[in-house]
């Protein structure tokens, strides 16, 4: 497998990384990089290790083997303080938004500004309204998160994750559970934000159609390994049968429909013998 040809000025760089929880190894031998200005999708089936990859990049999980470098700094032996300094330059959008339920929409977006800057309240107000305007929800500033629809909550969370103008934005399943219109809105917002901020973005998703239409580069992950990578066009035209099955959503292929089991006849016969 060739490495990513665009690896000049990488914001995120993983080399030969193994990672897992407890006894389970989730990812092995991962080479992965994202450079400034790039919007990269990580795609794969459920449980393939996509979210674990994000946890590695954000320093929530340490690699078992190999090196993880973010903004040129190694995360292997980083202290909590240094990690927090790096995280101020990152934004992350969670699967269901993870808005603070006890704060209003306005206060949610203002949260990182109030925690990390000493800006006067009037300037925070202007910044928050600008961010909310960018996702089209300036009018919803006084609402509480419980009053928002799923798509609106996702957009507020997006505004919050870019409140500090991050250089690296991570999206964990931003399209999960959205109707087609909200999905398109979020997709466009992700692309626009990435270009406006000149940031690097990682988009973890299993939504093929929407992500292929907005990203610059794609990694396909299956069972803890990167099995294919390339531009959206390269991926679409890939001769690899697995890639083909995933992109065109075929039920059976290299990824079997059946969970490994003894042949059906055997199971049924066995049952028949036991029954009488």
């Amino acid at each position: 497998m060739t490495t990513n040809p665009h690896s000049a000025d990488p914001v995120v760089e993983l080399r030969g990384v193994d990672a897992g929880y407890g006894d389970r190894l989730i990812l092995s031998g991962i080479d992965f990089s994202v450079r400034r200005g790039q919007l990269v999708a990580v795609m794969g089936g459920s449980g393939s290790g996509k979210t674990t990859l994000l946890r590695l990049v954000s320093g929530q999980l340490r690699a078992r083997k190999g090196s993880v470098r973010v903004f040129g700094e190694s995360l292997e032996k980083i202290s909590e303080k240094e990690l927090y300094a790096l995280r101020r330059r990152m934004g992350m959008l969670f699967q269901f938004g993870a808005l603070f339920t006890d704060l209003s929409v306005f206060d949610n977006v203002a949260f990182p500004l109030r925690e990390h800057t000493d800006l006067p309240e009037s300037m925070i107000r202007d910044l928050v309204l600008l961010k909310l305007n960018a996702v089209g929800l300036r009018g919803a500033a006084t609402l509480m998160p419980s009053e928002l629809s799923g798509g609106m909550a996702r957009r507020v969370a997006l505004a919050r994750s870019v409140a500090l103008d991050p250089e690296l934005i991570m999206y964990d399943e931003p399209f999960a559970g959205l109707d087609p219109i909200s999905l398109g809105v979020i997709g466009q917002a992700i692309r626009k934000l990435n270009d406006a901020l000149g940031a690097a973005s990682i988009l973890v998703t299993h939504d093929v159609v929407e992500s292929l239409s907005i990203v610059d580069y794609v990694y396909l992950v299956s069972q803890g390994k990167i099995i294919a990578q390339g531009t959206p066009d390269e991926i679409r035209n890939s001769p690899d049968p697995f890639v083909h099955q995933f992109i065109y959503a075929e039920a059976d292929g290299p990824v079997p429909f059946h969970y490994p089991a003894p042949p059906l006849e055997e199971s049924l016969l066995l049952e028949a013998e036991v029954a009488p």
Partner: peptide, 11 residues
């Protein structure tokens, strides 16, 4: 995930 989100915002 509000706690993780907060942790990710370096708080």
């Amino acid at each position: 995930e509000q706690l993780t989100a907060m942790d990710m915002m370096a708080v």
